[in-house]
Amino acid sequence: MTGPEIDLDMLADAMHDQNEVSYFSPKTFKVYPEFLLDDASGSLEQFGEDADAHDHLLLVDTVPGSTSHIDMERFALLVPDEDVRDRMESAMSGRGGFRRFRDLVDEGPPELAPLWRRFETCRRHRRAAEWLRDVDAIDDTTADALVAQCDAEYDAVDAELAARQNADLATVIALERELSTPAVRSDRVRLAELVHEDFVEINAGGVIRDRAKTITAILNDDVRSEPRIMHEEVATRLADDLIEIRWRSERAGQSSMRTSLWRRGPNGWQNLRHQGTPIK
């Protein structure tokens, strides 16, 4: 994110450390924990040839403990999934919120943890860049460039979260379309892959069927060679691992409104529930 002369990681760590006092040298652009400087006999050795940097140390201002909570709130606002947002808000409330939030992120969708770490890093780096500006360690041009890089990363994380959400919705719609094709409706293996083991269907005639009966009924369907045309599809994420699709179906001269629930598990997205209602 930055050139080698400015280590924003080191400075950001010092700014967020509530337990250790640190100093920054505008001569070397390095951070020196206080405990290393307490030993007067050895402290100057750290500065090498630029020993006079010892006389220009600046106390690193630590950020309030609530800052990390603010970062968590900001990240949660970027998450399109309402269920995940609600769980994040619940996790971060009260004592131990940061740990619970991190656990939730680590245990959530695999893409969430790296995106959170990128987001957290860009927020911390931005604060470090602004602090360097405030203490006149860097000029406004350099500070603006660093802040712009941090803001660009923030926008990139926001865009990627939205894109991944949209990608899941598109994937499930494509699977629903596939499940409606004559090729899949005559393929027992593929049907078994797409239909969840806890699947339940309420068909257009009001009959309730489980997975085994549904697969058998599809394979024995006299008109399964007729393609089912999907119109007006609307996909909605109900939870991190659950997406609902509603659409209008046309097949063999008959119309119906259909709703499916797809759940993501170890075997990918699978159809968990299906219901059809005839259109008169």
Results as ranks from 00 to 15, higher is better:
2 T>H: 14
4 P>H: 15
6 I>E: 13
7 D>P: 09
9 D>W: 09
10 M>E: 15
10 M>W: 09
15 M>Q: 10
16 H>V: 04
17 D>C: 03
18 Q>D: 14
18 Q>M: 12
23 Y>W: 13
23 Y>I: 06
24 F>Q: 07
26 P>G: 04
26 P>K: 00
27 K>W: 08
28 T>L: 12
29 F>A: 06
32 Y>D: 01
32 Y>A: 05
34 E>D: 15
35 F>Q: 14
37 L>V: 09
37 L>K: 08
40 A>T: 14
40 A>R: 13
41 S>K: 14
43 S>P: 03
43 S>K: 14
44 L>D: 11
46 Q>E: 10
50 D>R: 05
52 D>G: 00
52 D>Q: 07
53 A>C: 02
53 A>T: 07
54 H>D: 04
55 D>K: 10
55 D>C: 03
56 H>F: 09
57 L>W: 04
63 V>S: 10
64 P>F: 07
65 G>P: 03
65 G>V: 12
67 T>W: 14
72 M>Q: 12
73 E>Y: 09
73 E>M: 14
76 A>I: 08
77 L>R: 15
78 L>C: 07
79 V>L: 11
79 V>W: 02
81 D>P: 01
81 D>E: 11
82 E>R: 02
84 V>K: 01
85 R>I: 06
91 A>V: 03
92 M>V: 08
92 M>L: 13
94 G>Q: 04
96 G>I: 06
98 F>W: 15
98 F>P: 11
99 R>F: 09
105 V>P: 04
106 D>L: 13
106 D>Q: 14
106 D>I: 12
107 E>H: 05
111 E>Y: 14
114 P>V: 00
116 W>P: 00
116 W>E: 03
117 R>T: 09
118 R>I: 04
120 E>R: 15
120 E>G: 03
120 E>V: 05
126 R>K: 13
131 W>K: 02
132 L>A: 06
132 L>M: 01
134 D>T: 13
138 I>N: 09
139 D>C: 10
142 T>L: 15
144 D>V: 12
144 D>M: 12
148 A>M: 04
149 Q>A: 15
150 C>I: 10
151 D>A: 13
155 D>E: 15
159 A>Q: 11
160 E>T: 06
160 E>L: 08
160 E>Q: 07
161 L>G: 02
164 R>N: 09
164 R>L: 05
167 A>V: 02
168 D>Q: 03
169 L>A: 02
173 I>D: 01
176 E>C: 03
177 R>E: 08
180 S>P: 06
184 V>D: 04
186 S>Q: 12
187 D>F: 05
189 V>M: 06
190 R>F: 07
192 A>I: 08
195 V>Q: 05
195 V>G: 00
198 D>E: 11
201 E>T: 05
202 I>C: 14
204 A>F: 12
204 A>R: 15
209 R>M: 12
212 A>M: 07
217 A>F: 08
219 L>H: 08
220 N>Q: 13
222 D>T: 13
224 R>T: 06
227 P>K: 05
235 A>S: 05
238 L>G: 01
239 A>L: 02
241 D>W: 01
250 E>Q: 04
254 Q>P: 02
256 S>M: 12
257 M>D: 15
258 R>W: 02
258 R>G: 12
264 R>G: 00
265 G>Y: 00
266 P>V: 02
269 W>A: 01
271 N>K: 11
274 H>I: 06
274 H>Q: 15
274 H>N: 13
275 Q>P: 03
276 G>C: 11
277 T>L: 04
277 T>K: 14
278 P>T: 09
278 P>G: 08
